Amino acid sequence: MTNSFVLVGNVASSLKLSTSPAGVHHCQFSIEHRSIQVEDGLSRQAFVRMKVVATGEWSQRLASELIEGMQIQVTGFINRHESRTGNPVLALHAQQIEMI
């Protein structure tokens, strides 16, 4: 099975850096996408705001490279996370981030 996801949008929140107890670095932020899509011959507005998680050494460099409002393309996979209240949330786990 394949779980591959690509999303182009704008950085919609400040970056949050953290390190797990095992020493793994993480960077989290939100990406916002707005576009007009054609579905069954009709135009419709598409809007999504999604949590992005980058893991590993490269994720620490993102704090100096990404700024709120910047347009990026994120390639990775989606996974379920739980919010602090226990609600399920989809997160895009970044494997590559390209500045546009």
Rank of each mutant, 00 (worst) to 15 (best):
S59W: 04
C27G: 02
M70W: 00
R34T: 14
Q73R: 14
S18M: 12
M70F: 03
Q28N: 13
F29M: 03
L17N: 10
E65S: 08
Q37R: 12
K51S: 12
A46N: 05
L62I: 06
P21A: 15
E39F: 04
Q60Y: 02
L42V: 12
G23M: 07
V38I: 14
V24A: 09
T55D: 05
T19V: 15
G41Y: 02
Q45R: 11
V24E: 10
S83E: 07
R84I: 13
S35E: 10
H26S: 12
G76A: 07
A54C: 08
T75Q: 12
S30I: 01
A22C: 00
R49D: 04
I72R: 02
E57N: 06
E32R: 09
R44H: 09
E39W: 01
Q60P: 00
K16N: 08
I78L: 14
A46Y: 14
S18K: 13
G56W: 04
W58Q: 09
I67N: 11
V48W: 02
H26L: 13
V74T: 06
L17I: 07
I78K: 08
S18F: 03
R80S: 10
M50F: 02
P21G: 08
M70S: 10
A63F: 04
Q45P: 00
V24K: 11
T19G: 07
L66T: 04
T19S: 08
Q73E: 15
V38D: 01
S43P: 05
S35I: 06
I36L: 11
F47V: 06
M50N: 04
N79G: 12
F29H: 03
S83V: 05
P88C: 03
T85K: 14
Q37T: 09
M70T: 09
G56F: 03
H25D: 14
L17S: 10
N79E: 15
L17E: 09
P88H: 05
R84F: 11
E39T: 08
K16Y: 05
S20E: 02
C27D: 08
